[in-house]
Write a protein that binds this DNA or RNA. Structure first.
Lengths: 121, 121
DNA sequence: TGTCAACATAGACACATGTCGAAGTCTGAC
DNA sequence: GTCAGACTTCGACATGTGTCTATGTTGACA
């Protein structure tokens, strides 16, 4: 019943993403996908994802991330929580430091969502 | 000085999207990309895109789209405007009807954004 | 045990956003 | 010209969201 392991919600979100152009998306699937998109549709959070993804070792601690912005530490912490709850970042506490790591399956699910069918000539 | 042709803003947004994991994204680029993501991070708009993309001929008129939702027609019109201003939908008025068509370049730009580097073994 | 540092949570506030009904703008038909 | 229909725009309202300061929690260390 621990709540620090893995992601809290959206366990199914990674298998959610059939291409947008494949067939009309129903309301339930749209709600699931927008859970991911809303988390990313914010400049600070998008940059946070980008920093984590391109950081050495594929992970970054909160201190690294806070330094990259002219925002308060609680604000960065809030954004990281949003990304984590959306299933985009994994959280790993090591000693006093907390490291965040991107979930490749979530990213690739979004890549699949925006894949287009082969152009009809 | 016409304002009905093409898309009003974000002309450069299609070339914007280097992969998220490539390097830390700067604030300006993040703002551009979130322009696209914010437009899509709403269930009704995501479904609208999906319907237009999978509709016969790749386009749909407002009447088709309004029927698919239990929302007022002005609300659908508002969402279509948001998608159009983000550069995701093209608008084409033919007689009394208005047809919307997805911009494949916008979709594929987002696909590129979420493409991951080859996994390092 | 006490203290410090890293991070999270709580509460408050301003601002953005989704929705609606009402009114406006075109376009085609009579 | 006038009317009807398809769609957009306007103004209002409730709700959601990003930010802050203040406070809480947790782990390392003397």
């Amino acid at each position: 019943m621990s709540k620090s392991d893995g992601l809290p919600i959206l366990h199914e979100s990674y298998a959610c993403c059939t291409p947008l152009a494949r067939e009309p998306m129903d309301a339930r699937q749209a709600a699931t996908v927008t859970g991911l998109l809303k988390a990313l549709a914010e400049p600070v959070r998008l940059r946070l994802m980008s920093i984590v993804l391109s950081h050495e070792g594929g992970e970054a601690c909160v201190c690294d991330l806070t330094d990259a912005f002219d925002l308060s530490q609680p604000t960065i912490s809030h954004h990281l929580k949003v990304l984590h709850e959306a299933g985009l970042l994994d959280r790993d506490k090591r000693g006093v430091w907390v490291y965040y790591r991107a979930r490749p399956d979530a990213i690739s699910a979004l890549g699949a969502l925006f894949s287009l069918p082969a152009p009809r000539v």
